[in-house]
């Protein structure tokens, strides 16, 4: 996931990313970036992420937990 984030926001400092922080604020990403992240995770992990679940992927911790429950 960090790799995909680095691809979407190459100028971001992922070292200092707070795991529980809102990715949109931490990395200054917008809905287009977020959608691109969802696409990348879908391709890479084969996980279905319905749009209504997007709010459950807004931080690094939350996204990892969500993806675990989806069997990734």
């Amino acid at each position: 996931m960090l790799e995909e984030l680095a691809r979407i926001a190459p100028e971001a400092d992922l070292e200092s990313l707070a795991p529980a922080g809102d990715l949109r604020d931490e990395l200054d990403i917008d809905s287009m970036d977020h959608l691109n992240l969802m696409i990348a995770l879908h391709r890479r992990l084969g996980v279905e992420i319905p749009e209504r679940d997007y709010p459950r992927l807004l931080s690094l911790d939350a996204a990892v937990a969500y993806l675990r429950t989806r069997g990734a």
């Binding site: 809905s31 287009m32 959608l35 969802m38 696409i39 879908h42 279905e48 749009e51 209504r52």
Partner: peptide, 16 residues
């Protein structure tokens, strides 16, 4: 929402 629910992330639209 109805349209995107049927589609994979690649095919979803943003409200923009």
């Amino acid at each position: 929402a109805a349209r995107n629910a049927e589609r994979s992330p690649e095919a979803r639209l943003l409200i923009a």
